[in-house]
Design a binder for these strands. Structure first.
Length: 184
DNA sequence: CCGTCGATGTACT
DNA sequence: GTACATCGACGGC
């Protein structure tokens, strides 16, 4: 069995779970998404919680577009916009396509650290702020229309936040060695 | 193995 | 000035 094409106009936590196990490429580089987090408009941990700003404008744009923001002044983080003010942070992937290019961008010896975190993943994929608001169904993005069902999908607390810490909107592929960190 | 810390753009007090 | 959806270098065990 396989699921249908991903519909972004639904609650972000459903999209986040549906993205696990799905193929995602940027200009031919990428792999299988193994970890995501959902953020919602009424969610104190979400960038959109206090309304639009120059940075988070993309979160209020069209479903199925990218929201790329700078994290801690250094890294880039990639989100998929869902309903208005909600998005899914792509936290980790199992790298599979364009490995040589991604290894060159990341300069690490262990493939497990190529995409095992939101900042690592954007560096490996070559994603930066210039991709903000771009449509995810057009090149250079390629998102798998189907995926294997019956995956062992774990959920838990989101990483690196201080508000709404008990909302279990982090999702991951059980047993994957490519997670940013284990689930509890 | 583990914890601490610096880097530093954007948003908020 | 302080916080932050992070990462990697470094030091101690």
């Amino acid at each position: 069995m396989q699921s249908h094409t991903l519909e972004f106009s639904q609650p972000a936590h459903l999209v986040a779970k549906s993205l696990i196990g799905r193929r995602f490429l940027v200009s031919g580089c990428g792999g299988i998404i193994v970890e995501t987090e959902a953020y919602a408009p009424d969610d104190p941990a979400s960038h959109s919680f206090r309304g639009p700003t120059a940075r988070n404008k993309a979160m209020f744009g069209n479903p199925g577009t990218a929201y790329v923001y700078r994290s801690y002044g250094i890294h880039w983080c990639l989100n998929f916009v869902c309903t208005c003010g909600s998005a899914v942070l792509i936290r980790a992937m199992e790298p599979h396509w364009g490995l040589d290019v991604m290894r060159e961008r990341r300069d690490v010896s262990d493939d497990r650290s190529l995409c095992s975190g939101p900042g690592k993943l954007t560096q490996a994929l070559g994603v930066d702020g210039g991709f903000d608001r771009w449509a995810l169904d057009q090149y250079p993005f390629e998102l798998g229309a189907t995926r294997i069902d019956d995956l062992n999908i774990l959920s838990g607390r989101r990483v690196g936040i201080t508000r709404a810490v008990d909302i279990p909107w982090r999702f991951g592929l059980g047993g994957s060695p490519f997670l940013s960190r284990p689930f509890n």
